[in-house]
Design a binder for these strands. Structure first.
Lengths: 141, 141
DNA sequence: GGACATCTACTACATTTGTAGTAGTATCCA
DNA sequence: TGGATACTACTACAAATGTAGTAGATGTCC
């Protein structure tokens, strides 16, 4: 089965966040602005040293992933990436790298291999139907 | 919209191939066994020095991603990963990292954001229906 | 059988990533 | 007001990654 290719993107979104950076971003999207101390709490599963997290945040600031605002002695961090956009970039990256540009292969793969539950399939069908209607609406103008 | 969580995998498949390693693997799955020289041809878009590719291959061999068989002066490489499995691991990794374990979010994201063509939607629906039947068959035993 | 091409093995090196320590400074509580 | 705490800025360092050079072994063609 083949769904076809994704058109080559103009600007392939420079620099994906690293693994650890995703963890920080996920925490930040959940709660922000947040101090490093708060984030460390949200990321307690990682068992990072406080300074480890600080280093991450410093670097992410340089990369433009987050920004910090100093209030008194404490820096308050906010994400500069929109979650959806970052996710989209990550998905695109995966499709390019792993599925050689064939977005449909990823979909097929998900449906075939991820053992969706009946409920998930149902929802997915509904989503497709919704997209269908959306498209039709757009087409009518 | 939410589809639910993926169960935490027992062994989270150690070490994903790196970006460059995926390129090599994709070439190898396309054609193997292949010599470094042949692979360099398949990967001409990368404009790698021959020795760069060789280094990649050496490392991938250490990691158990490929194996080499020496015939005469030349090493012939074969992938040791099965493509589907590697893809699955990569998708799982993405879901964990980017969608915090919610496989359904990825699906929703794809359907919503990737602007599937009508044809793609149709195929996907068919895939779902197929999975549906499959599931029913399994259920009947 | 020697000159030339080709391969492999080994080494090199900058960058990124994960992980944290240290030192200096700002805060706060008794 | 001075000591304990907390926070920031800077430094460190190993492993992984991307990229390639060099040298020595091997094969090939006249």
């Amino acid at each position: 089965m083949s769904f076809g290719q994704v058109p080559p993107s103009a600007n392939p979104d420079p620099a994906q966040p690293s693994d650890a950076e995703w963890k920080v971003l996920n925490a930040l999207w959940r709660r922000h602005p947040a101090s490093a101390r708060e984030l460390l709490g949200l990321l307690s599963a990682e068992r990072w040293a406080y300074t480890t997290l600080k280093t991450m945040l410093d670097r992410m600031q340089e990369k433009g992933f987050v920004r910090a605002e100093r209030r008194g002695n404490v820096s308050w961090y906010e994400p500069l990436l929109e979650r959806k956009r970052a996710q989209r970039a990550a998905v695109r990256d995966l499709i390019a790298r792993v599925f050689e540009g064939a977005a449909g292969s990823l979909l097929t793969h998900l449906v075939d291999d991820e053992r969706l539950s009946a409920a998930q399939r149902k929802r997915l069908s509904a989503e497709i139907a919704r997209a269908e209607r959306e498209e039709a609406r757009r087409a009518r103008g």
